[in-house]
Structures are given as C-alpha cells and as structure tokens.
C-alpha cells in the first residue's frame, strides 16, 4: 500500500543524535531554522535567542499562522509535528502573556519554540494553527480553558477541562487563587448544578453542523426544544 510508506526520522540530517551534554543556560548552538525564518519573514521575527539549548523565536502575533504554515510546508524546514501549544503568564503581572508553540521537524531532527506576546488589557487573541496541524485542536481548547486566550480560526473553541458553565474564571491565570474564588460549598453547589446530561443531546452535535443533515422530523423536535436521547 503506497499510503503506508515508513517515515524514517532524520532523513534530512546526517548527524547522529546524541544526548545533549553540559547545555549552557544562554547561548550555544542555534537551530538553523531561526536564521531561515529571519530571512523569510524579516519584520515579523522580533527576537531569536537560545536558552538551555533550545531556540526561541519571538514572532509577531498576527503572523503566527503564516510562519507556522511556512515551517510546516517548506521542504527545507519540514516541521511536520506539533508537540505542544501552551501559554505562560509570569508572576510579574505587568509582563505580557506568552503563547508558546513547540514544533518538531522529524525529518531534520530539530526542535523549535515559537513564541508570541500578548499585552495584558488587550484582547487575548492569537491565530489558530489548527488549519495546519489537526493535533492543535484540543491543545488550543485547553489553552483557552485555562488562560482565556482565544484562538481565531479554531472551529470549535469550547472549554474542555472545566465544565462549560464554570463561572470562576481561568484557573491558570496568576490572579486566580489556588483554591478557587468561591467557597467550597458554593463550588460544590455549582458543580452539582451542572447537569451531566445536558451535553448529551443533538444540540451539542450541531456544534459540528450535524443539524442540516438530520431528518426533518428530528430537526423539528430539536427546534421545539424537546430533549433527545434521554
């Protein structure tokens, strides 16, 4: 079957991988993709530095999707694997929130960290990389759930870990207290209030546009507010 050609990592990088030793805190060998990015997107690349052996590229928020798409598609970069999407808020509340993408190139055995900064007080919004990497789907939803950062272009940005009616805010923000904002009894009351069956209905499926494909009578029943499936 032609579809299943075994992908061998490192085909573009003859160097044998080895455990990194004595990695300096600052500086060191940089990932060549940083330079390539600078050439390709000169103005959108704000800073490139090497921290603990990993190359950080700080980019302009609006350009994230273009940059990531280029890294994914370009044959000399070939970052086909998205490890992680997450955000960082610093304890110093005046510092901007950072959104971080960890990319891997399986072909060249490279690791790259893309970062962008979001000023507090503005709308926390970054482009979604979901159109490039399907794996970003839940990672971005989680980031939204925990930090309240919206990913423009994500098809279904809902809370994922907390329940949808969760009222206390975004737990991983630094202004969120460790034990939550409400008293324990209030938290429990709200949790028990969340109807577990509420998400077990055709309405929810319509999130993914099932509605149009449903039989007419079922659509009528849903439109009338009748609960299905109970």
């Amino acid at each position: 079957m032609s579809k299943f050609e075994i992908v061998k990592p490192g085909s573009g990088n003859p160097k044998e991988p080895a455990t990194p030793k004595n990695v300096p805190n600052r500086g060191g060998e940089a990932n060549p993709s940083g330079i390539a990015l600078k050439e390709q997107f000169s103005a959108a690349i704000l800073r490139i530095d090497v921290v603990n052996g990993e190359t950080n590229v700080l980019v302009e928020t609006a350009k994230v999707l273009d940059i990531v798409r280029w890294l994914h598609d370009d044959a000399t970069q070939s970052y086909e694997y998205l490890s992680d999407v997450t955000a960082v808020e610093h304890r110093d509340l005046s510092m901007p929130i950072e959104v971080v993408w960890h990319l891997r190139s399986i072909k060249y055995r490279r690791f790259l960290r893309i970062k962008t900064q979001l000023k507090k007080g503005t709308k926390l919004e970054v482009p979604s990389v979901w159109p490039v990497y399907k794996g970003a789907d839940w990672l971005e939803r989680e980031c939204y759930d925990m930090f309240g950062i919206t990913f423009a272009g994500h098809y279904d940005l809902r809370r994922i870990l907390m329940w949808e009616q969760y009222k206390e805010g975004f737990p991983l923000r630094k202004d969120f207290p460790l034990r939550g904002r409400f008293s324990r009894s209030e938290q429990l009351r709200q949790a028990l209030d969340a109807n577990p069956e509420a998400k077990y209905s055709m309405e929810e499926l319509s999130v993914a546009d099932a509605f149009e494909e449903l039989p007419l009578d079922m659509r009528a029943r849903i439109a009338s507010g009748e609960k299905t499936g109970e």
Partner: peptide, 24 residues
C-alpha cells in the same frame, strides 16, 4: 503526524519516531 500522535500510536502508523532514538 498531523494529528500529533506519538508513541506506539504513531509508530504503528509507520512513523519510526521514538524520542529515545531521535532526541535522546
């Protein structure tokens, strides 16, 4: 790869990516 699978899931799909080998 595009879905970000890893571990035995990814290797069963024919991608020989193992962190132990590639980023040891």
């Amino acid at each position: 790869l595009n879905y970000g699978l890893s571990g035995p899931m990814l290797r069963a799909s024919g991608v020989a990516y193992d962190v132990r080998k590639d980023f040891p």
